[in-house]
Nucleic acid binder design. Sequence first.
DNA 1: CCGAATCCGAGCTGATACTG
DNA 2: CAGTATCAGCTCGGATTCGG
Lengths: 123, 123
Amino acid sequence: MSTAAITVPVTVADHDNCPATSVLRRVGDKWSVVILSVLAHGAYGFNELDRSVEGLSRRMLTRTLRALEEDGLISRTLHPTVPPRVEYTLTDLGRSFLEPVRALGLWALAHRSDLEAARTRDG
Amino acid sequence: MSTAAITVPVTVADHDNCPATSVLRRVGDKWSVVILSVLAHGAYGFNELDRSVEGLSRRMLTRTLRALEEDGLISRTLHPTVPPRVEYTLTDLGRSFLEPVRALGLWALAHRSDLEAARTRDG
DNA sequence: CCGAATCCGAGCTGATACTG
DNA sequence: CAGTATCAGCTCGGATTCGG
């Protein structure tokens, strides 16, 4: 294997079934990371979340909360009071998920000028 | 302010202009991470990349390569030979970008069973 | 207060065919 | 070999309206 490095075949197959793919797509989701970041501060109700994130519609809030719940990243607790109160909180899985996500955010901040420079070079 | 923790306002504004948002969306992009991962092995030509990733169309390959180039994550080199040869390689920025991305992939692998369990609980 | 249901435009995505 | 052009399906995301 002297110079194998120049002809590595690296065929990427089964992209959709890769366990990492669904995680990556959740990260790229427009509101998931924002909502998770807000919930990192504590429990929130539905409208509380709605008001906390500028530009977030109730529809997308509902959808995103459902998706995050199905992934086990947040938990939903219904308090049968009047009026009803629903609390969303991070699960342990959700908290641990925020760690690599923050690493990505820190990278973005650290290389912010590089990214802007690249965007400026060509439009 | 005795129990301020339960009413943290945490208003998230200006979501679209956050420097981290564009990075997160690139991560969530369907093919970006796959292509970057392939290029981590060395330089690739256009059709070489096309064949290396199952299910990737030429159209989306072109689009993704342009986007990655505009972000400064890869570089495109045209060799004016016959037939023409174009080489795509990672930039230093692209290589450093792969580090936090890999952290996310490792998280996905580490918590794979947790994620599957959550998906199984409710469909 | 906490959603669900519906409608609709915009953009992503792929198949196919064509160019230099 | 390395793309571009065009068309069609689908999903995303928002506005609005309705229900528990």
